[in-house]
Each structure stands twice: as structure tokens, then as C-alpha cells.
Write a protein that binds this DNA or RNA. Structure first.
Lengths: 388, 388
DNA sequence: ATGAAAGCGCTAACAT
DNA sequence: ATGTTAGCGCTTTCAT
């Protein structure tokens, strides 16, 4: 009987305007907090908003503002498209605990799903490996903590194949996100170049291995390694070895360089080393090699905590006490460090703060207030716990 | 000189249409793969698309389709807004390695930032705790692996305060995402109800502690606990204790119930227990309590791997060998299980598959093919490694 | 300070 | 099979 056909969907600006007896433009101004609005009208509009339960439609808003208030957080690898023989090779996310491989399943497996790599399966997939390392969770934490107060949320993407990289670029070009925060886990990652070539705003975590005109945050890795070396030396260690990160990525190179330099300056020209891949498993293997060749070593610097944990395990299995017989020092100050027994003395990388800064740089760039390409380098610090 | 004022922004459908000499509608059809398009025209449109470098604008598309192809992945807590005295209390994300607390920072701290809880700082923040547990990374992995082939990506959100919950609801109401996948870490989480009350599509990971008309995936926790009990019993353990999860969440309750029942049926009516909070730290504390009261125990079931790891540490420190003196069995089969020495025998929860299923349920619901509220329960399985 | 109107780029009837 | 047209809901000149 009434001539008030309720609008089907959720209320629009139009509805609010009608309810408040003003124009759409005015409601829009109030909603967006634009000045030049009569306080009285302002109030009535607010009431109308509340009464109607109005919520602005993001798509409509984006269409005109050309902003989405979403940013992509992409974890990038350097791999080419996977080829049959490349399945497990090449890729080594910066620190994973390695394949969940071992262990045979016993007991009832009458689960509703096929156990052989179903959708979303863990497998040795890149995404699975990525989160096995505490590092990425910290990046997410830092990014979220910075973004959230600003009403923004990260869209999680992975770019480990060229196909995935194209999808990321495409996603950004569609205007699905205003920019990208990229954490690269590999050397020669083509993604940063792809993004900048497309003229898309982005900021990196860590210096790209290929020079690229793009802002990034990074750690003074060499300084961190120096802290580690000095600590080991000060402690009296004289037969020191190191488990490096992958030597094709800057972080791996720099940590080694910084450590070796400090050792050399201290009159220790010979530094046994074994390369790891930032995974616990690789750390274990590296430690075993080191121990085989240098049974008398009394100090080890691992280029990250996860490998240090692996080293501790192997040392213990070989009857060495940590830190009494062999002092071990890690890098990152991740949750793995405190979970370890003894807790790891380590070089702290303020990942959360660095990630937040990365987000800040991107947002500044988006706001247009800071167009220049810059880099922000953080200082590491030593955290002394039980292992050294 | 030419009368071809290049469009400022990126090319639109209009541009492509002009280049191909057809109408916008036709281009739209080609782009969206709608049938009824002459192969010849189809080809010329494709060329025009390539030539112009066209990419569809997501906002414009969303505006009319009312779909964003984005889904929210929200990690939810039950906390009220934090009050001064509530800072560290109440909240216990389902498993974190506990505060990074210990360890004093030494050495140079001439970092560019204030060390006292800056933007994005780790602190004891909810987000930081969440990712300290391997569990969430696995959820993300499963969700991403399911979504990605479908051209969708998760938006990461945290909802640990009532304010944050409102923001999540608001975000969804704005049409920023088509639906939500929610992983609740606490008992009495109000978020599921808030979401369904708002008529928003969502699927849960784990049965809500309050009955709610909402689909979810879950694990047959009791069956898992039974597997653990049977294994310990079969192994010959007769003085068995358990470290439970928080007893106000279903997963904690069910795992205890299943374990206790199986023990009772096996003629073991007395089950010493200590409650943990799914964190390594709490697992350590619980183990210490158990050991103090029952120095002769020979088997321990921890309600998750992270606590089991803590238990192993404490047992070793008290001179017990695992598994020779005390057998330890965990739950989840997370990366913590294989990282542990000895590697943990554990009850596997197929988190990645469950998360993928959760995503599938949501997408089905969004596609309208499946409106009914359902639950999918997965079967756990026993993974035998070294600790038991 | 407020309203009218244009238009962001796209899809989906509807017409042909 | 293709083109025409009418919006989707919003912000933003431009008038007033």
C-alpha cells in the first residue's frame, strides 16, 4: 500500500540523502569528513546514516578515487616456471624448517580426502615453505600493525613462478591494490623490475640483488655479523666456524663478509665455513660437515636462528655442550631463538619495525609526499642469551 | 598536431573497442570469455587488447557484478577491548612460542628507530603471537593454494578486540571482500555471530564454542587423542600424564576428553593433567608441574606439538631421556614436530587441506551452489617418529 | 554551505 | 552475433 519500495541491496548515499533531506553530495561530504558542512546538517546526516545502516561501497568509491586502500604483500621467489626436474631444486625460501618429509603415517587414514597432494596440500609448495620460517610471520606482523590503524589491509600473494609474477603485476595493474610490498627470498628475482617497469608503486624488504630503481629497507648485515664475531672472540673462542646463508643472496653474502672481515682483523685469517639455505635441515647438515672437518671447533656463527637451532642439535648429538664446548650464535632473534635450548644468543634484526617502515615508505609514496627512491638501513643489535 | 589526445590513464574498454572497431560490449564479451562471439572478431579484439595493453578495472567491474574476488582471512580472538590490566592476560592465540621476552639487548642500538614499541613493533601484540605458531602459516598455505588457481587472494585481518571486529564486519559490509574465512583462537569469540548477523558469507575453521548457524571444518579431535592414547599404551607406558590445551576451547576440551576416555577404557582411571595454553612456554611450565608431582611418569600426551617441544626440553633438563624414560606424543604434525629432537611422534591434523576445504565451502556458498550450513570433519592420523 | 550533474569503467539487459 | 543503453554508487567540479 505504501509507495516506498524498499531498495533491494544495502542502503546507498541516495537513501541516506533522502532520509536526511539533503543531497547526495552533502552526505558524501559528511561521510568523508570534508569541511564546510553546517554542524546542524552534519548531525542530521549522521542520524540518517545510523538509521539506514549505511556503509559506503568500496568499489564505487575506488572507481572514482582510483584508490583501493589495499596493498599487496608479496613473497617472491626467483624460480622460473617449475619444470618436471625442478620440483624441489632451486627454491629455498629464506629459511624454512625443510620438508616435513620424514615420518610414516600410521593408524587410521580414513580421512575424507585423498592424501596425495590435494588442493591446498602442504607438499613442498613454496607457500608452505615460506611460513615454516618465523621470519615471514614477523614481516606480516609489522606490516599489519602499521596498516591497520590506517584502515588498510594486506592482500597476501606469492610469486615464485613467472606465471605467478605476471598475476601479481596484473593484479596491481587492475587497480586491485594501490601498491606492493615485496619480500624477495631469492637472488635474481625478476619481480621488482617487472613491477617498476609497469610503473607500479612498490617497496622492497632487502636490497635487490640486481640494481633496481626501487625503495627498500634493509639491515646492516655486516655490522650484525661483526657483533657476532666480536662476541665470540671476546668470549675466548679461537677455533671458530660459520654456517652461511645461501651465498647468492645479499643477506647471505653480507653476513659472511662482515663476519670474515672482523675475524681477519682480529688475527683469525682462516674461517671454516659451510653453506646453508637458511633452513634448519641445511643448518644441521652444515654443522655436521663442519664438525667432521674441524672436530675441535669452539664457536659457530650461523647466519640465521633456524640454522643455529639445527647446529645445536647436531652439536649435542655429537656430545658437545653448548655453550661450554662450543658457543653458538644465531642471527635474527626470531622465535626460534627463544624456543631453543639453550636459548640462542643472536643478532637481532628488527623485522617488525623494518616491515612497518617498508609499509610507511609505500604509503608516503602513494600519498605523493615522497616520490624519491630511498633506502632505510636498520642497525642490528646483539641479544645475549645462553648459547654464547 | 594530431587530434588524438591520448587518454591519461590506462586504456579502457572504450579504447580497445575503438582500436578493434567494435563496441564495448563485444570487447567485454571477449575479455570475459562469453560465447556468441565471432572467432574473427574475437581475434581482432584480442589483438587490440594486446596492442593497447588493456587491463580491466576491478573497481568498475566490482561495481556492477557486486563481487570483488577477494576474500578476508581473519584470525580472531575473543578479547574485549584491551584494558590496562588485561594487557597480557586472557589472550592466548592457539599456540605461540610465548613472549620473546628474555634476553637483554647489548651492543650498539643506534638504530634509526625508537626501540620502545614503535609502529609495527612486535611487543606482545596479538598479530605477533599468532604467527609464532606454525599453525597459522599452514592455514594461510592451504587457503592460498586453493584460492590462487581461481584468481583470488586473501586479505589478512586480525580481530582480537571489539573494535577490530567491527572493522572486519565493516570491511565486509563495504563489499571489500566477498566473504570471510575465520580462524578463531578463543572461546566465546563473538565474531562469527557478528558476521552471520550481518548476513555475510563466512566459514569457520573449528567448531564455534557458541552454537552458530555457520559452516565450518574441523578435526575429529577425540579420535586423534585416542590414537595418541592407544600408541602410548601399546608402547607399554603405564604412568601417563597429559598437557592439555586451554580448557575453554573445544579443541582443548575434545582432545582431553578423547584421551581420558581411551585411557579409562584401558583401565587407567587416573590421568594427571596440567593445563597449557598451546604455547611452548606453557608446555614447559606444565611439564615441570607434572614432573614435580609425578616423578615416575613414563608417557606424556601434549595437546599440540609446540607444547610437546616444551615438554621435551623440560624432561631433558630433568635428566629424562625421550623416549627411553618418557615417551612424548604431540598433536598437529606441525613443523615444530620435525624440528624437535627427537622428532615428535604426533597426531596429524591436515591443516592445509582443512583450510583449503574451508575456502571451498565459502566459494561454493558464494557461487550459490550450496546454501546449506554444513560441517566437514577431518580424520586425524598418527605419525610415528622418534619421541614415542 | 549546499545542490545539480557529470562521469569513473564496466556489465547486462534489451534490441536488432 | 553485435550494438545500444542504462545504470552500479560514489566523488567532484561547477553553480548557486
Amino acid at each position: 500500500m505504501t509507495e516506498d519500495p524498499r531498495p533491494a541491496g544495502s542502503p546507498t548515499l541516495e537513501d541516506v540523502a533522502r532520509a536526511a533531506g539533503v543531497s547526495r553530495a552533502t552526505v558524501s561530504r559528511v561521510v568523508n569528513g570534508v569541511r564546510n558542512v553546517d554542524p546542524v546538517i552534519q548531525e542530521s546526516v549522521r542520524q540518517a546514516v545510523a538509521a539506514t545502516g549505511y556503509t559506503p561501497n568500496r568499489a564505487a568509491r575506488s572507481l572514482v578515487t582510483r584508490r583501493t586502500d589495499a596493498i599487496a604483500l608479496v613473497v617472491s621467489g626467483a624460480g622460473d616456471d617449475p619444470t618436471p626436474e625442478d620440483e624441489t631444486g632451486g627454491a629455498h625460501p629464506a629459511g624454512s624448517t625443510g620438508g616435513d618429509g620424514g615420518g610414516h603415517h600410521a593408524g587410521s587414514t580414513r580421512g575424507a580426502h585423498d592424501p596425495d597432494e590435494p588442493d591446498g596440500g602442504a607438499g613442498s609448495s613454496f607457500t608452505a615453505q615460506v611460513f615454516a620460517d618465523p621470519f615471514f610471520g614477523r614481516v606480516v606482523t609489522g606490516v599489519v600493525n602499521y596498516l591497520r590503524p590506517r584502515g588498510m589491509y594486506p592482500v597476501l600473494m606469492f610469486a615464485e613462478t613467472s606465471r605467478a609474477r605476471d598475476e601479481v603485476v596484473s593484479y596491481l595493474r587492475q587497480g586491485s591494490a594501490d601498491g606492493a610490498l615485496v619480500v624477495s627470498t631469492h637472488a635474481d628475482d625478476p619481480l621488482p623490475a617487472l613491477i617498476t617497469d609497469a610503473g607500479l608503486p612498490a617497496v622492497l624488504y632487502a636490497r635487490p640483488s640486481r640494481p633496481t630503481r626501487i625503495s627498500y629497507v634493509d639491515l646492516a648485515h655486516q655490522d650484525g655479523a661483526r657483533l657476532a664475531a666480536e662476541h665470540l672472540l671476546a668470549r675466548g673462542c679461537r677455533r671458530i666456524a660459520t654456517i652461511t646463508g645461501p651465498l647468492d643472496v645479499p643477506a647471505g653474502q653480507d653476513r659472511l663478509a662482515g663476519f670474515r672481515d672482523t675475524m681477519a682483523r682480529a688475527g683469525q685469517p682462516y674461517l671454516p665455513l659451510a653453506e646453508g639455505r637458511f633452513t634448519q635441515e641445511s643448518g644441521e647438515a652444515a654443522m655436521a660437515r663442519l664438525l667432521a672437518e674441524h672436530p675441535d671447533l669452539d664457536g659457530v656463527f650461523a647466519a640465521n636462528d633456524v640454522m643455529a637451532v639445527g647446529a645445536c642439535h647436531v652439536l649435542r648429538e655429537h656430545g658437545r655442550r653448548v655453550p661450554e664446548d662450543v658457543a653458538v650464535i644465531g642471527f635474527d632473534d626470531s622465535s626460534a631463538a627463544v624456543a631453543c635450548r639453550p636459548p640462542l644468543t643472536t643478532v637481532r634484526q628488527p623485522v617488525e619495525e623494518m616491515a612497518a617502515e617498508m609499509a610507511r615508505l609505500l604509503l608516503d609514496r602513494l600519498a605523493g609526499s615522497d616520490r624519491a627512491v630511498t633506502s632505510v638501513i636498520f642497525e642490528p643489535s646483539l641479544v645475549v642469551r645462553g648459547s654464547a
